[in-house]
Simulated scan of single mutants.
Amino acid sequence: MSNSYIQLLEERDIKATAIRILVLKAMFEFNRAFNLPDLEIKLDTVDKSSISRTIHLFHEHQLIHSFDDGSGSIKYSICSRDCHCSMEDLHAHFYCNYCKKAFCLKNISVPKFELSPIMQVESVNLVIKGYCGQCSKFAT
């Protein structure tokens, strides 16, 4: 299994180190989008600054993408192999108001916008909020 993580890192021109493989493996264990504190809890023996630097590197090399779900915490998700984080790759996200988890909705593309020729899009954030149907809506 470690070889597939190494291959994925190498496909994005990221040198495979023990920490990077460990962080990537932890990211794959989430069935939803995750934030920095999620990874810090999962990897409690790893230095927090190492995790933060690794996230930044993965984001820079488009191995993961980030989005603001409105919760005040940036969420991350692993990109598909054919993703290059271009406008064509952008998709919607869902945020559960009850369990506070966010999920990628890769089957819902972000619409294209007709803007003034002098305007340049740098990011688009489409978040749908509601009840995920998987959590106990009234537990807190």
Results as ranks from 00 to 15, higher is better:
114 E>N: 15
65 H>P: 00
44 D>N: 15
50 S>K: 11
49 S>C: 00
62 Q>L: 11
30 F>P: 02
115 L>K: 08
118 I>M: 15
20 R>F: 05
55 I>Y: 00
10 E>H: 12
57 L>G: 04
101 K>S: 04
106 K>Q: 06
69 D>K: 05
137 K>Q: 15
108 I>N: 04
128 I>A: 07
69 D>L: 03
50 S>C: 07
12 R>S: 09
124 V>G: 03
68 D>Y: 08
114 E>L: 14
88 E>R: 07
39 L>D: 02
83 C>K: 03
107 N>F: 03
82 D>K: 08
77 S>L: 09
106 K>N: 12
12 R>F: 05
3 N>A: 11
15 K>Y: 03
48 K>A: 12
30 F>H: 04
98 Y>C: 06
125 N>S: 10
53 R>H: 06
70 G>T: 09
32 R>T: 07
137 K>H: 14
46 V>K: 01
79 C>F: 04
11 E>F: 11
55 I>E: 01
8 L>K: 14
69 D>W: 02
139 A>R: 15
26 A>D: 01
62 Q>K: 14
139 A>K: 15
95 Y>L: 08
66 S>E: 09
75 K>P: 00
117 P>D: 13
105 L>M: 15
131 Y>K: 12
47 D>H: 09
113 F>E: 14
119 M>H: 09
105 L>K: 11
140 T>P: 05
98 Y>R: 07
95 Y>T: 01
80 S>I: 08
50 S>T: 03
43 L>Q: 02
76 Y>P: 01
93 H>F: 02
83 C>Q: 09
90 L>D: 03
83 C>T: 06
139 A>P: 01
132 C>F: 03
11 E>T: 10
83 C>E: 13
70 G>E: 09
110 V>N: 04
126 L>V: 08
86 S>E: 14
89 D>A: 08
23 V>W: 02
59 H>Y: 09
5 Y>M: 08
109 S>N: 07
33 A>R: 07
129 K>E: 14
45 T>I: 06
72 G>Y: 10
76 Y>K: 08
58 F>Y: 05
8 L>R: 15
130 G>V: 02
87 M>D: 06
52 S>R: 15
37 P>E: 09
31 N>I: 02
53 R>W: 00
70 G>R: 09
109 S>D: 05
25 K>F: 10
60 E>C: 02
42 K>E: 08
139 A>H: 13
21 I>S: 04
112 K>Q: 13
15 K>G: 01
94 F>D: 03
17 T>D: 04
1 M>G: 12
124 V>N: 07
109 S>K: 15
95 Y>R: 12
42 K>S: 06
86 S>F: 02
116 S>Q: 13
88 E>N: 11
